[in-house]
């Protein structure tokens, strides 16, 4: 039986992601200097920020793939939007958790209703709801259309998350809003290395999950045809 085979490039991306993340860990714990005001806990920033940024890229991917699906009715876009939403919910959830741990240490509270935190939490719930929606027992065509429409509308919150720390009075810093964010050279190198490392992880996870979703959809169609 012919199924969607995985690309031979995919394992390579996974290996590169693993090596890049190992390097990122080395840079966080060994290479990057300890920040003088916040101390060693500031190093949470090196995985907190890449997770947050790549979650926003995930939701941008959901938005673009949903539009592409409605225009072309090609199911590969539906699989990509589902996969990107899953990885986005994972990454934004981890960004919320790491931010909460950092906040508990620095601000003395696990959570505060700050504009950046609140819009991020709303975004997490919106996309978690989107994933629940995708599991509904509806006809395939209808579910694909409804998911794509929700995937487009849900994106409304994403620019708000990005701009919240700049638009409103927020205790959350707008990183790189000023020139380079006032980071030392080693800190800047570390944060860039971690953004790249988490980028490889994001590509590997999204690609693999999208391939799995395409394969599952193909098996569903073949199973239905066999039954008929």
């Amino acid at each position: 039986m012919q199924t969607n085979r995985l690309s031979p490039v995919m394992p390579l991306v996974g290996i590169v992601a693993g090596l890049a993340l190992a390097l990122c860990q080395y840079m966080i714990f060994v290479y990057a200097p300890v920040e003088q005001t916040m101390g060693i806990v500031q190093k949470i920033f090196y995985f907190h920020m890449p997770l947050a940024w790549w979650s926003l890229i995930s939701f941008l991917t959901v938005f673009v793939a949903s539009i592409a699906f409605l225009r072309t009715r090609n199911w590969k876009w539906d699989a990509l939007s589902g996969a990107a939403a899953e990885v986005g919910v994972l990454f934004s959830g981890l960004a919320l958790i790491t931010g909460s741990i950092w906040g508990r240490h620095s601000w003395g509270v696990w959570w505060t209703w700050d504009p950046r935190l609140t819009t991020t939490l709303v975004m997490w719930f919106v996309y978690a709801g989107y994933l629940v929606l995708r599991t509904l027992d509806l006809p395939r065509e209808r579910l694909g259309t409804v998911s794509a429409v929700v995937g487009i509308v849900a994106f409304l919150d994403v620019p708000l998350v990005f701009l919240s720390a700049r638009l409103w009075r927020s205790i959350h810093p707008a990183v790189f809003a000023s020139k380079g964010g006032g980071l030392e050279a080693e800190m800047k190198t570390t944060v860039i290395a971690c953004i790249v490392a988490f980028g490889f992880l994001w590509v590997a996870l999204t690609w693999l999950r999208a391939a799995q979703r395409r394969m599952a959809a193909r098996i569903d169609v073949l199973a239905t045809e066999t039954t008929i």
């Binding site: 966080i28 949470i44 995985f47 994972l90 959830g93 958790i97 790491t98 741990i101 992880l201």
Partner: peptide
């Protein structure tokens, strides 16, 4: 310890 807990949370999630 706060740093290690946050790091562990990321790897547990992934």
């Amino acid at each position: 310890q706060w740093l290690l807990v946050a790091n562990a949370a990321v790897w547990l999630g992934i």
